[in-house]
């Protein structure tokens, strides 16, 4: 039994069947990639997983708990974090303040009024935040305003913000979209390092085959809202159906 089980999920937008009978079983501790051509329903599936969309039918179970009908912040509290296609960070805040907020959320839950306490008194959280910043090599940028970071650093910061909460499942929506090759490779290394170091399951949605084949342990190919095949990267590479639906198209 996997950490995340998606069964019989259907989602319709008007006349468009965005997701049709999606069944997924994501094993604990794996790196699972979901690939597919544009419009295959990858983002819709991700939005269902994080509670942004409610499917018409089907169930999504995380660690034995249903995520359907829960708000995004409740789903995060279950242990699911999400990295966005364009980094979603607190751009007016300093890098360090960006790191503090997930630390507070992890400790205090959805709301606690700390209106008169001082930040400097939270020694444990500060230490935790600084350790995480050091782990992603951003300790020297802690006083910079997040909006002035480079694109790669913003991504790095966003991942650090997710990881400091020690999620069980990390969802990544095209983590390398719009990055230069060097930045992409850095991100791949970072993700591999993260996965090696901690007990975490990753689900990656990605266009870039280079990224997918350097990270994923298992791949699901989605086409027109339905999973076509699910297999190991080696088998996916040579699969005729996949070539036809996706890789062939990319090669042409």
């Amino acid at each position: 039994m996997g950490i995340l089980e998606v069964s019989n999920v259907n989602k319709r937008f008007g006349g468009l069947q965005a997701l049709g009978d999606v069944n997924l079983d994501i094993a604990n501790g794996t790196v699972h990639a979901i690939i597919g051509p544009n419009g295959a329903g990858k983002s819709t599936l991700l939005n269902v997983l994080v509670g942004k969309l409610t499917p018409d039918t089907g169930t999504v179970m995380f660690n034995g708990t249903s995520v359907l009908g829960r708000k995004p912040y409740e789903i995060n509290q279950l242990g699911i974090s999400r990295v966005f296609q364009t980094p979603e960070i607190f751009s007016d805040l300093s890098v360090f303040e960006n790191m503090l907020i997930p630390c507070f959320a992890k400790r205090d839950g959805a709301f606690r009024l700390h209106a008169l306490e001082s930040i400097a008194a939270e020694k444990q959280l500060i230490e935790k935040a600084e350790q995480m910043l050091a782990e992603v090599n951003m300790a020297d940028k802690r006083h910079m305003i997040a909006s002035s970071l480079s694109r790669g650093d913003k991504r790095r910061l966003e991942m650090a913000m997710c990881l400091v909460q020690e999620p069980k499942l990390l969802l990544l929506d095209e983590p390398t979209a719009g990055m230069a090759r060097a930045d992409t490779n850095n991100t791949i290394d970072l993700l591999n390092e993260i996965h090696d170091k901690r007990d975490i399951t990753m689900v990656i949605i990605e266009h870039d085959m280079h990224v997918v084949f350097s990270l994923a342990k298992r791949i699901t190919v989605l086409a027109q809202g339905t999973p076509l095949v699910e297999d190991t990267p080696e088998n996916i590479k040579g699969h005729p159906k996949v070539k036809e639906a996706y890789l062939g198209e990319a090669a042409a």
Binding site: Y73, E88, A105, A110, Q165
Partner: peptide
């Protein structure tokens, strides 16, 4: 600054 990230941070 960013309510989306706020929500996805569990707040």
């Amino acid at each position: 600054t960013n309510q989306t990230r706020m929500n996805y941070t569990g707040l």
